[in-house]
Every structure is written in C-alpha cells, then in structure tokens.
C-alpha cells in the first residue's frame, strides 16, 4: 500500500460560519485524490457546495465538481473523495506544493491553503531504464546533489525498496560496497521531472543517507520529507 498522510483540519468551523473541512491527499491506482470530510457545525442546513483551486505549481485541478447533491444538515458530516488531475494552469507557488482552495456554500465563500505531499505526484512509470539512468546520472554535475539523513530507521535494504516502490520510488540497482548497501533509485513527477537518488544503508547504523541527484533541486526538501 502507498503511504497515507495524516488527516488535518484545513478549515476550522469558527472561520467558516460552522463549516469544518478536514482532509488529506492520496494516490490510488494511478489517480490523485483529495479525501475530505465536511462537517456542518452550524444551526442551519448547508447546500450549493462548490470548490475551486487557485493556480498552483503542479497544475492541480479537480477532475469533477464536488459531488454533494443533498443538503448537509446540522451536525451531519459527509466524506468526499475528490478526483484530481494535473492539466490545470501552472503558477509557481512558495512553498512549491502550496494549494489555495476556495469552497462555497449557500452561506458564504471560504478560503484555506494546504500543502500537497510531493509523493502524490510520483507517477507509476517512474522506473528509469538502467542505461538512461547511468547516462543521466553522469550528465548531472555533483553540485546538483543534496544529502539528507533519515534518522532511526530499522529496515533492511529490500524492505526499504519494497516500501518505496509502493510509493512509486523505484530501485534501479543495488550494490554493496565495503558492507554498505547503495540503492540507485528513480522517480518521475506528474510534470515530467525525473529525480535520481542514491540511498545508503550501513549495517548496524539506523541513520540512512539519501542523496538526491537532479537538475531540479528546488524539489529536494519536499522529496526528503517523503523519504
């Protein structure tokens, strides 16, 4: 299974005249979703719901309108999985994964912003051909590398590979040099950007090192969080 991110309250009821929205993002069978719960904490019913996104770095837009066909009564909640795609207009946000959302109902229009986990953008065909991987790695200068420590991890290299593969981070090759496992990995984002990585695991050392190697270094910090 792919990793499930924590559900967060995106829009507290006190800021939205009684409407509370909590949610998370997920990727299932090659599709992105915004999984949300709408709760009516007001004393009146709510109808006429609609959702809209501001332009964002990855061109994320809802694939369908919000499917809420019946009024949301006081104290009632509804779970909605909104399918998303990345064919919308692109505008670079800071941070890169920031998403600004507008939700309307019969009472008012409300706004919130949230961060989309980068892993939602890792596509299923992110396994780079081995020959292409080697050539690409050579073409990227070492200045385009960034290193990160993953602390307190107690899995072996194969388990790590399996877990990452479930999240569309693919191990292209594994080598053991002087007792240290070196995993060469690739992933591709929905916008076509490839990221190459080297993951180092030393026996008996719970701290792993991941070294990202890509021409697009602005996404590295987000990537490390996903590792």
């Amino acid at each position: 299974h792919s990793f499930l991110w924590f559900v967060k309250v995106w829009l507290p009821a006190v800021k939205a005249k009684g409407l509370e929205i909590s949610g998370t993002f997920s990727r299932r069978q090659g599709h992105m979703y915004m999984d949300m719960s709408f709760i009516n904490k007001a004393l009146q019913h709510m109808t006429d719901f609609a959702i809209q996104f501001n332009k964002n770095s990855f061109g994320v837009i809802p694939t369908t309108p919000l499917a809420m066909h019946t009024p949301l009564m006081p104290s009632q909640s509804i779970d909605i999985s909104l399918p998303l795609n990345t064919i919308g207009p692109v505008m670079k946000m800071d941070p890169l994964n920031n998403l600004q959302v507008a939700v309307k109902n019969n009472i008012d229009v409300f706004y919130f912003s949230t961060l989309i986990p980068l892993s939602v953008f890792f596509v299923e065909d992110g396994k780079m051909e081995r020959q292409v991987f080697l050539a690409t790695w050579k073409d990227i200068p070492n200045e385009n590398e960034l290193q990160y420590q993953i602390k307190d991890c107690h899995l072996n290299a194969d388990t790590v590979s399996g877990k990452l593969q479930n999240n569309n981070i693919y191990t292209i090759a594994k080598r053991n040099v002087e007792g240290q496992d070196m995993l060469y990995q690739s992933l591709k984002l929905t916008n076509g950007i490839w990221i190459l990585a080297e993951l180092r695991i030393q026996p008996g050392n719970p701290n792993y090192t991941v070294i990202a190697h890509s021409t697009k270094i602005d996404q590295f910090q987000l990537l490390f969080k996903n590792y």
Partner: peptide, 20 residues
C-alpha cells in the same frame, strides 16, 4: 552481454561514490 556492461557500470558508480 550488454546487460553485463550495465551491471559493471553500476558497480563502478557505487565504488566511485564510496571511494571518490
């Protein structure tokens, strides 16, 4: 034969990274 070459290339890469 070509795949052997790739296997070796990855070994060389890993070694060069460990002992630059």
């Amino acid at each position: 034969e070509m795949d052997d070459g790739l296997e070796e290339a990855f070994s060389r890469l890993a070694e060069s990274r460990t002992n630059p």
